[in-house]
Design a binder for these strands. Structure first.
Length: 573
RNA sequence: GCGCCCUUAGCUCAGGUGGACAGAGCGUCGGACUACGAAUCCGAAGGCCAGAGGUUCGAAUCCUCUAGGGCGCACCA
């Protein structure tokens, strides 16, 4: 088990990207600030911009005057009028209007929008990156499935969400270490060891029954065959403890190897594979128990050691929790506290754990422990990834490893495909339960939203292939005259492209990758609609080059967006 | 019993820290290719945002209660 590093140097993980471009909304906020200052009004600490649903309300709108009304003791519309009056001229803005109860509606200048294409193309793969997380070191744990069987469909959801979060955070400058924690100790480990030993005996023709709480899945039968084929024996002379250790370690190693392989096929690689067994071996639990005791955060009762969890009512735990059992063993909780305190928080600004809904009762005591040990409350975050209800032709498929009936991630990959599976998981909020009908997803795979987005990319690549076949030279981005782009549909498309950094930034801030997935569908729709009515390759060379630049920019954003989700962008489909 | 999450179109789901007439995909119905990919596009139907109160200039969004659903409440992990 020594092949998994417990510690990882954060500087080994790439993640910082230089970004010089200033966000459009930051520029607009500056304008509002300047105007307010000139009018002698107080400035807001922030200014929320939204993209109005209706075109008449402009390209961006803010309710800042209404927010300021109370502090400034002026009517919202009066404030808004003053902002409009003093708003400094800037190339981005064509005009700014007051509307409704005191909204400020900003209309972007078409010529500036068209010109921004050059900038987007110049940024290329870095377009969408930001600096909001620059310099932050983040430890992100997800999946962490028990090493008692192959990965199932919920693990696929957690993997998709966790991997996308890592990509998002890195895109905003964070240094992220992704981690898979292996629960290779305790009762479940013992149950696995006993189950596997029974299967090995059966393989050798020795009658043996599975233990009460054993794992009946067929994978252990297969594993027993492999074990024997590799020359493994029954170990009859060894003590029970030695046998359990031997069979348990073997099973865990092979099962984790399988999980790792599946995740790799899914496109998810972890920076750290850590092991509960290792944490125990390094005596970290004893250390943290001593530290808690010396700070008066624990007490002995009924032969066990308890953490004063209930003294942290603000985090919502209602009772104290056992750290060390009266039988002497440290609980999973005790080990986890030690691991978080000494390892996860070492040189880390922020620890994020993705857990299943069955662990949500666990969150409060961990939060209390982290707080007690002096970690800032906001530095420890837990996201609950809700369950996947799996259907096959409308019939629920029960998922229980113990009963041996479940749908494997490998099957999901084979039936639905990597891109479609990941995208589907990412079109739901992670904290909302998801219904996934395998039969439907497979049968209607051509109508899956992921293909809609990928198709836009493939179409654009096709246009450029066509152009190449016709011997048309594509101008360099910096040399393209974008002024011929005046059609409403193409300006709308460009304005959408300008939103991309905001969307990525917002998705990162909220830890909600699904926002990117939804937005990409919107962008693809705008492109398909425009494409239908506007010819790219044509005799008017100036217009053609401008439109090719537009296509290239759309393509750049789609590829960057899919990349953030870990979804591929095929040249042709 | 206590606590947490959820309830939006026929179905599956979006709706930044409350904002200006509620959105998408699928499904249904009706249209569109002798030019760059029809895995596409255009249009229609479909909603008392579970229900009732409250806060607010303004509520799907915040608060309270009710009904329905999920999960958690171990010296398991």
């Amino acid at each position: 088990m020594r092949d998994w590093p417990l510690f990882l140097r954060h500087d080994a993980v790439p993640g910082r990207y230089p970004v010089t471009r200033m966000r459009l909304t930051d520029r607009l906020t500056d304008g509002v600030r300047t105007a307010l200052a000139k009018a002698g009004l107080p400035e807001p600490d922030a200014c929320a911009w939204e993209v109005p649903r209706q075109a008449e309300h402009g390209d961006y709108a803010t309710n800042a005057p209404m927010i300021l009304a109370r502090v400034a003791k002026r009517a919202p519309r009066q404030i808004a009028d003053l902002v409009v009056k003093h708003f400094p001229p800037m190339p981005e803005v064509e005009r700014i209007e007051v509307a409704g109860p005191g909204f400020l509606n900003v209309f972007l200048a078409p010529a500036w929008c068209a010109g921004a294409l050059t900038e987007i193309l110049g940024e290329g793969v870095t377009y969408g990156r930001g600096e909001s997380q620059a310099g932050r070191r983040i430890r992100l744990e997800f999946v962490s499935a028990n090493p008692t069987g192959p990965l199932v469909i919920v693990n696929g959801r957690a993997a998709a969400v966790g991997d996308a979060l890592a990509r998002l955070l890195r895109s905003q400058g964070a240094s992220v270490a992704t981690e898979f924690y292996i629960n290779d100790a305790g009762n479940q480990f013992e149950a696995l060891a006993r189950s596997f030993e029974a299967r090995v005996k059966q393989e050798f023709g020795v009658p043996a029954a599975l233990p009460e709480n054993g794992y009946p899945g067929e994978y252990l039968i297969d594993l027993a065959k492999t074990y024997r084929a590799e020359g493994g024996g029954l170990r009859e002379g060894a003590s029970e403890a030695e046998r359990l250790e031997h069979f348990g370690r073997y099973a865990v190693r092979r099962i984790v190897e399988g999980q790792r392989r599946t995740l790799r096929e899914y496109g998810v690689e972890f920076d750290v594979w850590s092991s509960e067994h290792d944490v125990r071996e390094q005596h970290l639990p004893e250390r943290v128990l001593a530290e808690l005791a010396s700070r008066g955060l624990s007490y002995e009762q009924d032969g066990a050691l308890w953490f004063r969890s209930s003294e942290h009512e603000e985090v919502g735990d209602d009772k104290d929790r056992v750290l060390r059992r009266s039988s002497g063993g440290v609980t999973y909780f005790g080990v986890d506290v030690a691991y978080h305190h000494y390892v996860k928080f070492a040189g880390t600004d922020r620890v994020i754990n993705l857990l299943g809904p069955d662990h949500h009762g666990y969150v409060a005591r961990m939060r209390a422990a982290m707080q007690a040990l002096g970690h800032p409350p906001e530095a420890f975050e837990v996201l609950i990834v809700q369950l996947v209800t799996l259907l096959r032709d409308g019939q629920p498929v029960r998922m229980s490893k113990r009963r041996g009936e479940f749908v494997l991630m490998e099957e999901l990959l084979e039936e639905v495909g990597r891109d479609a599976a990941r995208f589907t998981f990412l079109t739901r909020r992670h904290d909302s339960p998801l219904e996934f009908d395998l039969a439907v997803a497979t049968r209607q795979s051509n109508e899956n939203p992921v293909y809609y987005v990928q198709y836009a990319h493939a179409r654009i690549r096709s246009i450029f292939r066509q152009a190449a076949e016709q011997g048309i030279a594509v101008a360099r981005a910096a040399d393209v005259d974008t002024s011929p782009l005046v059609e409403p549909a193409e300006l709308a498309l460009i304005k959408l492209l300008l939103q991309f950094p905001e969307i990525v930034g917002g998705a990162t801030r909220a830890l909600e990758p699904h926002r990117v997935a939804y937005w990409l569908q919107e962008l693809a729709a705008a492109f398909h609609g425009w494409y239908r009515n506007h010819r790219v390759i044509q005799d008017d060379a100036r217009l053609m080059q401008a439109r090719m630049a537009l296509c290239a920019a759309v393509d750049t954003v789609i590829r960057n967006g899919l990349e953030l989700l870990g979804v591929g962008a095929p040249e042709s489909m």
